[in-house]
């Protein structure tokens, strides 16, 4: 019991990634390519959720506009592909830089405020980019923009679903590791200290704005990478990637899985997206069920799934 209480989080993380690594095997054996795509998508949203957890869970910033960075990353890939840039490193590199720049602008303005203002402003900026994408008729406007080829990175052929899947899995694992380093570093401690008690942090000489802005940019950058992966996976970009409900869904993943736990949001992404799939097979009106489920989760199960899985250590 004692030993398991210490090892449970570690075992849970290995089990989670082990299961994710087995999905292509299962999908190959039973000839179910649908699962490969579904879980590739799940992992991409898990990446977005981990990035949001950095600002939401550790920084206390309720960003309601993280779909914006998904969209910026995706559109960077789509637009470069449209103009004939086939190099994946360039596509993804530009996606990362563009989302970092957008996060810097949005963060610099939004972080001047806090509380409700911050929620509404991040939401509004994401909506601005949504309408911007709609108005870009040259890049498909409302209808979106197909991407002809996924491309290759060295020996990895992204047109091969399995190879793309494992690349996404590796990026997710790497991001999770990096995120753990960041939240445990001096930077992470300063960020978290300012979240719990801003007044105290200031009295210690820590200027919260700078730390929050850097965290916001890191988060937007990771989320932009998720967007680039999403565009690559679906070979398509559209304004709907930036729909505000998408931002809401990513928040749900974080809270459902457990805030400020990093692994929790991955589980939240798995559970939410799989639940959506299951509900959608039951009824076309599955949102009628999902909505009240969300309300019940908020009212009665705030601690998140990770606390339960990992033995409440992070409670």
């Amino acid at each position: 019991m004692r030993v398991s209480a210490i090892d449970r989080p570690r075992i849970a993380v290995f089990a989670l990634f082990g299961l994710l690594a087995l999905v292509p095997v299962y999908s190959g054996l039973f000839d179910q390519p649908f699962y490969l795509t579904l879980f590739a998508r799940v992992m991409i949203f898990a990446l977005a959720a981990v990035s949001l957890d950095l600002v939401l869970g550790f920084g206390g910033m309720v960003s309601f506009g993280h779909a914006a960075y998904l969209g910026v990353g995706a559109y960077a890939v789509g637009i470069l592909a449209y103009h004939g840039v086939d190099s994946v490193p360039i596509r993804w590199g530009v996606a990362i830089l563009a989302s970092a720049a957008v996060a810097l602008f949005i963060g610099a303005v939004s972080l001047r405020t806090s509380g409700m203002y911050f929620i509404m402003i991040t939401l509004a900026f994401a909506q601005m980019l949504f309408y911007l994408a709609v108005s870009l008729k040259a890049y498909g406007g409302d209808d979106g923009l197909p991407i002809a080829r996924r491309g290759t990175i060295g020996p990895i052929d992204l047109n091969n679903g399995t190879q793309l899947y494992y690349l996404i899995l590796i990026l997710l694992a790497a991001t999770l590791t990096l995120a753990h380093r960041v939240v445990g570093s001096r930077f992470g401690r300063a960020l978290e200290g300012a979240k719990w008690n801003e007044r105290r942090a200031i009295a210690l000489g820590i200027a919260p704005y700078r730390y929050r802005l850097v965290a916001f940019v890191i988060s937007g950058t990771v989320c932009g990478l998720a967007g680039a992966l999403l565009a690559t996976l679906t070979s398509f970009v559209s304004p709907s990637y930036m729909a505000w409900t998408r931002s809401g869904e990513v928040i749900v993943m974080v809270v459902l899985g457990g805030m400020a736990t990093l692994t929790g949001p991955i589980i939240g992404a798995v559970v939410l997206l799989v639940l959506e799939e299951i509900l959608a097979t039951l009824t076309i009106h599955w949102m009628l069920i999902l909505g009240p489920i969300l309300i019940l989760v908020v009212l009665f199960a705030r601690r998140g799934l990770w606390g339960w899985i990992a033995g409440d250590r992070h409670g």
Binding site: R181, V182, S185, R186, F187, R189, G205, Y211, V214
Partner: peptide
């Protein structure tokens, strides 16, 4: 956290604090 603040900026992202 107070010691860390005294030692200068906290833009150090890697080492476990």
């Amino acid at each position: 956290l107070a010691i860390q603040a005294r030692q200068g900026h906290s833009f150090r992202f890697w080492r476990a604090a």
